[in-house]
Design a protein around this nucleic acid. Structure first.
Lengths: 340, 340
DNA sequence: TAAAAGTATGAGAACGTTTCCACAAATAAA
DNA sequence: TTTATTTGTGGAAACGTTCTCATACTTTTA
């Protein structure tokens, strides 16, 4: 019942432990005949190397920690899936840590990554807590982040501050909307701050002033979006369009407005960001900005592995994630605007 | 830069390694004064115990592998989140393995769990591959499964074969539907087989025969649901209702029918299973059967931990997961039926 | 033919913990 | 006082690997 060890294989096959190890790892010389003996013993005993002993000895864990704010958000679920597929193929494990959008959890997550001795970290943060940064730097292991930090030189996958929301707000403006509100995520979170900035940039470029009570910030969840919807539904004077900080929030808005019989897009236009699968099937389908989880996963993995394997040891690299407007049913043209 | 070890703390504080270890683990005696010395050294060196050395020594990894068929399905994402919350509180890690609905991946996942020496496994299977079972038994570690296996005595969280679908099919029948189709998941998967059985049981009880071309099986995804929708849309003679094997598939059906201007529920009624958050916001909202991820997570964790900690060592336990009909907009009454 | 290079194996020291054991000092019980 | 018991400490052997060395036999090279 007990798991077989190298020693068991060694005595079973009458070969020294070192040779067995060499055979298993394909390092160094080992005769064909001995190899066959060993293989036999391995199979008979169903030998599997003990990962902990290996990690201890080699000081490399073959583990990558992926920190995400919300695994219920399909955007992050896609990232996990695609990372896992790549990682397993190379004998690495992706250890997922879901922070449920809580700042303390982000700190714990970073600490956790250090404790388990992760070889690398992919850190999808919505907060920009200094404590996390300090710890990451001190830890010294390769890190990929989704945020453009000034104070730390990590490899980064980002889009210019709030670029996605900027694009969707521009779209609303082009559609002739002048009364536009914003529905954000956790107000103190960095992602929200940046997205709001992108939103404000777009409207201010058109000299439009957004009243404070048209800015609603709670968190990046459907429930929050629903509450925002109920809030806007109750206003005396409503905006004609709402810019949501992501698709999930937009879904909540849609639910609320459907319930309150406020028609989208006739009464109000809505935009999201991420282009998750559900944005194609909600009623109305959602105008949004593509933010590809696949793209993120692909490049995050590549950059991280180059660091882990020390193929690349130079300066921090910054990759801009493309954003692209996808127009669907949830936005309507109020008045034609002349082009840019 | 290098991580501090017990030895470092030991020499720094002028206390033996054993004593430091005892202090860290709170096992055995250690004087208040020495304790303070050690604590100081620990903080100065930022000492964190090496998990691998611990696991190696203690032969317990504090890791639980969670195998799920589809992390994009919010039902499983919820399970992960809730398990993680409980596990972290006790110093355990949930290692997620997403099989992407592939049978080979389930086998690999089980193998993976053994290799990393997981203390326990929560195995949400859609296949019932014998190879997996054999391996799980041989491994000997505690396992929780979501399926009622005859051949193996694992703790189980299940619902009677296809009970959820049985309930939704009964609902459609009560609504007066007689022409009902079924949209399932991967045809060879055990979950699909059981759900189809539940469906057939319900219709056969009413002496209704379902033509073969009203049964569509592909996989448990929105894309598959969409294809099914397109298929049914193209039929000469369509059923008046469709029973989907889960909510995700139902979402795909809704998308397709919306696109083809087939009205739900006027032209066709649709039911799902799981009651994921999105089922409340799609248009029309989805009639479905509640299948609580929280319930699963709570009990799976409890049962597993009782095994890991050997609080319970008796016979395999079987817990029935409740299913409850939730009627929303996607089903309509064709003709009133006298009660049961 | 001697030296160098290649092939094949095993002994044993790490890696960072935990834990059993021995010992000593202080305290309590007899 | 003597004998137990409690409290506090350190030495050292594991846990299952990897990897450097040392050794020995073959083959090639000069």
């Amino acid at each position: 019942m007990k798991k077989a060890t190298l020693k068991d294989v060694s005595s079973r096959s009458g070969v020294s432990v070192s040779t067995v190890s060499r055979y298993i790892n394909g390092s160094g010389y080992v005769d064909d005949k001995t190899a066959r003996c060993i293989q036999e013993a391995v199979e008979e005993l169903n030998y599997k190397p003990n990962k902990f002993a290996q990690s201890l000895k080699k000081d490399a864990t073959q583990q990558i920690v992926l920190i995400v704010p919300d695994i219920l958000n399909p955007y992050y679920a896609v990232i996990f899936r695609e990372l896992q597929e790549r990682a397993l193929a190379e004998g690495y494990t992706i250890v997922l840590y879901d922070t449920a959008q809580r700042e303390e959890e982000e700190i714990k997550a970073v600490s956790f990554a250090e404790e388990i001795g992760a070889d690398g970290i992919i850190y999808c943060s919505i907060y920009k807590s200094e404590e996390c940064l300090k710890q990451l730097i001190q830890n010294g292991k390769p890190v990929i982040v989704n945020n453009n930090y000034k104070m730390a030189a990590f490899d980064t996958l980002y889009s210019e501050a709030g670029n996605g929301i900027y694009i969707s707000a521009r779209h609303l403006l082009k559609c002739g909307h002048r009364k536009i509100g914003y529905v954000g995520g956790n107000p103190v979170s960095d992602v929200n701050i940046r997205r709001k900035k992108g939103f404000l940039k777009a409207v201010e470029e058109q000299d439009i002033c957004v009243p404070e009570d048209w800015i609603f910030e709670m968190d990046f969840s459907m429930a929050a979006g629903y509450k925002a919807g109920m809030y806007f539904a109750s206003l005396e004077e409503r905006p004609t369009a709402l810019c949501a900080a992501n698709d999930i929030i937009a879904m909540g808005l849609i639910t609320a407005f459907n319930e309150r019989r406020i028609k989208i897009p006739q009464d109000i236009s809505i935009t999201g960001e991420d282009n998750i699968e559900f944005s194609k099937i909600c009623r109305p389908t959602l105008t949004t900005v593509e933010n590809s989880g696949s793209f993120f996963a692909e490049h995050a993995y590549r950059l991280l592995m180059e660091r882990i394997k020390k193929v690349y040891t130079g300066e921090a690299r910054k990759i801009v994630c493309p954003r692209e407007l996808i127009v669907r049913e949830s936005t309507r043209i109020i008045r034609e605007e002349k082009g840019e």
